[in-house]
Amino acid sequence: MKLTLKIWRQKGPEDKGAIQTYPVDGIDGDMSFLEMMDVLNEQLIEKGEEPVAFDHDCREGICGMCSMYINGRAHGPKRGVTTCQLHMRSFKDGDTIYIEPWRSTAFPVIKDLVVDRSAFDRIIQSGGFVSVNTSGNTIDANATPIEKENADKAFDAATCIGCGACVASCKNASAMLFVSAKVSQLALLPQGDPERKSRALNMVNQMDEEGFGNCTNTGACAVECPKEISLENIARMNREFLKASISKES
């Protein structure tokens, strides 16, 4: 199929950036979206132009590196997939496709479609862990049974890949879905219990400091999340945060 691509080009963080138009031909329905971008880049290199920079790595939907805003939607039109899992059979011959980077103050553009998501790392560093040393002297793994339902919910929250689609989809550029997934995972498990208060307070605090917006419950994040992380997690984080704030005051 033949397509017209309208792609955001931006040389660096200081550059203003603009949409540029590129025609591509010979696109097969079995290609992934990123393989279609490979075809474009090969063409650009041949012509002596600079290829479009975009983040990608595992190309199987788990590393969370790819991050395109396609026709106004994070990771494109399909639900529950990342850009690398989006295939060209989702488009028709003659389509025009707009491709932009994630847009958020907390995710500055590095180049073209590549943004800096290190804010997410700093949020995890502020408390997204259990403070246990790797001493090799922990208790036996089966010494603490965990109710299957809670274990499963913790797992569902833990499947977050940290791609940032939630932020990109939110009109407030809120990172609540990302942060709440980690807070929930550890709040649902006995191992996370000792630090649950400080964790909720510190992670929310760091999230605010990074410049992410607040949550107004539109739910766009959960719709666009490639791992379909549930909004329930945000409610749980709010409870955790509130409980921790109250007990801190008293």
Partner: peptide, 9 residues
């Protein structure tokens, strides 16, 4: 044991 202690589900 170690991974469970870290909260690996």
């Amino acid at each position: 044991d170690q991974c469970v202690a870290q909260g690996v589900p």
